[in-house]
Every structure is written in structure tokens, then in C-alpha cells.
């Protein structure tokens, strides 16, 4: 089964206006700025990884429309269960370039105290939860968060983002099955980068995701993942459905496996240009501002020292049990003969 591909952006401005979501000129430009910054940040991080400065990195290149577009639809009280390719979402949820880089460096400025492998960020204020290394583990968690909202009578929604690999995991099934059974207010967004040359044509034998949603008893959508207006259209409709008690939605954002990673940004640029909202000078200004911001943030992240040694033993529990109190003392003064017991 193959879903109907939702797309909006084209050179026909009347058609875009008729079918697309209502977004003001200033918001359109802000979305473009966010995509540009997300891309610039990702490019820089890929370079840091290639040159060996950071030990691990997962790129979000080509996912700017889905990541930024989906986050644009959320309200501040909504929650995000992200994947590790959601740099755009991180920035949209209030994360700073500096905090992003500090996490990659695992330095003492890192909000996570250097505890996680690079690219496993989290943000408390942004309701952007900690990213797991187990693919798909967060989908049932997103459902539980939505159930908690329901239990408390809060009219918020949860966005769970994942890549195409997660759809083979048990966590995908349990997360979506529970969401369907309890009509949880969750938007499941799969950023599928393994589609064939034609959008919406699965490259593997696992088949269409939108069709699976039917089996779980809720709505499935297939959207052009390089088209930010189409993403905003389906995600905002899904959010509306969620908070109105209409249950979850599964959205498969199609991203061609061998497609041009510039496509998401270039397509919005083309649209802005047609609308008279883009010019080369502004583009240059954005690029320059991004470069400066990144140069400063990278320099600062590199100069920030490691977390203090004894920070290792905190946040295991709310309070230190005796084992960790003993081990903290050892860490503070260094190992000495007779410490074997600690």
C-alpha cells in the first residue's frame, strides 16, 4: 500500500497559497534562518568529526525541513522525544549553538555533565528529552508522556522523531500499539532517508509506514520531507488532532536516499525568492552571522575544561548512597594504597 504524498512547495504561488499552511512573511523568513543555522551547525560538526576533534557525530544534513518544520508546529508546553538527527529541533526548542557544541566536546559547560556520547543531547526547558542509544526505545516513552498529559487533563501533544531504522524495532510496535489502544496525543514522525529514487517508493522490503498506521487504528500520512510547508501542514494537523482527543498520527517524511541534501533549504529559498522575501545580500548576512556564531562557540567549547573528576558520581541517584560517597572521596584525593575496598 502506498499513501498519497503530501507536498505543497512549487513555483505556482497561487497553488501554494491555496494548499499550504498559513504562515506570515516574518515566520517564513525565521524558518529559513533556522534551517540555515541548523545546516551550518551540522556542516561544522561534521568537519570537527572528520578532523578528529570530536569522537562521534550523527549528521542531520538534509533533515532541515522535517526537523525545523515539525518543531515549528509545537507549543511551548508540548514535549519532544527526539532522535539524534534533530539539530533543527534542538535549536527550535531553545537550545543554543554553544550548548550543542559543549555536549559534543563533553566539557564542563555541557548541560549533560559530559555523561553522553556526542549527538545524544537533551534540553530541560525545551521539553526535549534525553536521547537514548537504543533505536526506538523512546517511542513507548513518548506514548507514556502523552498518557500522562491525558491523565492530568493537559491539552498538550508529544512529538516523537525517529529514523527509518526504528521501524524494525520492537519498540516501534509497542510504542505505536499502546498509543493506538489509549488514543495517546502523540505525533510519530519518521524521517525516512532510505526511500528510492521516487519519493514514497520504499527502498527496502519493510514497506510503507503510513499503511502500518491503519493497522494500529490511527491516521498515517506520507509527506515530502524536503518540503517544509508540507511538513508543517501535516504536523500541525496532527497536533490539532492530538490535543482535540483524536489520538496519534504516524507521519512518514520521505527523503530520497540519493537525493540532494541541499533540497530542503533550496526549496524554501526558491519559494521565498518568488515571494520577494529573499535576496542575495540577506543570504550573505545569514551565512556571515552563522559563521561568526560558530567560530566563537567552537573556540569556547574547545577552551572549556573537562568536567571535574568527582562529577562522575553525581546524578546516579537523587542523593549519594554510601558506595558513591566513599568513591567520591577517592576521586577527590586520588587513589591510595588501602583504597581497594572503596
Amino acid at each position: 500500500m502506498k499513501g498519497e504524498l503530501v507536498s505543497v512547495l512549487s513555483d505556482d504561488l497561487d497553488a501554494v497559497e491555496a494548499e499550504g499552511p498559513r504562515i506570515g512573511d516574518q515566520d517564513l523568513r525565521s524558518l529559513y534562518e533556522a534551517m540555515m543555522l541548523s545546516r551550518a551547525l551540522d556542516d561544522r560538526c561534521q568537519n570537527l568529526h572528520r578532523e578528529g576533534t570530536i569522537g562521534f557525530y550523527v549528521s542531520s544534513s538534509g533533515l532541515e525541513a522535517t526537523s525545523v518544520g515539525a518543531a515549528h508546529c509545537l507549543h511551548a508546553e508540548d514535549w519532544v522525544f527526539p532522535s539524534y538527527r534533530d539539530a533543527g529541533m534542538y535549536l527550535m526548542r531553545g537550545g543554543s549553538v554553544q550548548a550543542w557544541l559543549d555536549q559534543l566536546y563533553g566539557n564542563s559547560g555541557d548541560l549533560l555533565s559530559g555523561r553522553q556520547l556526542p549527538s545524544h543531547h537533551s534540553l530541560p526547558g525545551g521539553r526535549f528529552v534525553s536521547i537514548s542509544g537504543t533505536v526506538g526505545a523512546h517511542l513507548a516513552q513518548a506514548t507514556g508522556c502523552g498518557l500522562a498529559m491525558k491523565a492530568r487533563g493537559d491539552r498538550h501533544a508529544v512529538l516523537a522523531s525517529f529514523g527509518e531504522a526504528a521501524k524494525a524495532q520492537g519498540g516501534f510496535h509497542t510504542g505505536l500499539n499502546f498509543a493506538g489502544v489509549f488514543a495517546a496525543p502523540v505525533i510519530f514522525l519518521c524521517q525516512n532517508r532510505r526511500l528510492g529514487a521516487e519519493l514514497g517508493e520504499p527502498a527496502d522490503r519493510e514497506g510503507s509506514l503510513a499503511a502500518r498506521a491503519v493497522a494500529y487504528g490511527f491516521r498515517g500520512e506520507l509527506v515530502d520531507g524536503t518540503d517544509i510547508l508540507a511538513v508543517i501542514k501535516v504536523v500541525s494537523e496532527a497536533r490539532e488532532r492530538a490535543v482535540e482527543g483524536g489520538g496519534p498520527t504516524l507521519i512518514e517524511a520521505a527523503l530520497p536516499m540519493h537525493g540532494n541534501p541541499e533540497a530542503p533549504v533550496a526549496r524554501l529559498r526558491r519559494y521565498l525568492e518568488l515571494c520577494g522575501l529573499w535576496d542575495a545580500a540577506w543570504e550573505e548576512e545569514l551565512r556571515g552571522r552563522g559563521r561568526e556564531l560558530l567560530d566563537a562557540a567552537v573556540a569556547r567549547a574547545a577552551a572549556t575544561p573537562q568536567p571535574p573528576t568527582d562529577s562522575m558520581i553525581f546524578d546516579v541517584y537523587a542523593e549519594l548512597p554510601w558506595m558513591l560517597r566513599e568513591q567520591r572521596e577517592v576521586l577527590k584525593r586520588g587513589y591510595e594504597p588501602g583504597d581497594g575496598h572503596a
Partner: peptide, 10 residues
């Protein structure tokens, strides 16, 4: 969760 988020998410 608590540990890996630096105490942000107990």
C-alpha cells in the same frame, strides 16, 4: 535517565 541527562530528567 537522570545520569545521562546530567540530572535534567529524573
Amino acid at each position: 535517565y537522570r545520569y545521562r541527562s546530567g540530572g535534567q530528567y529524573p
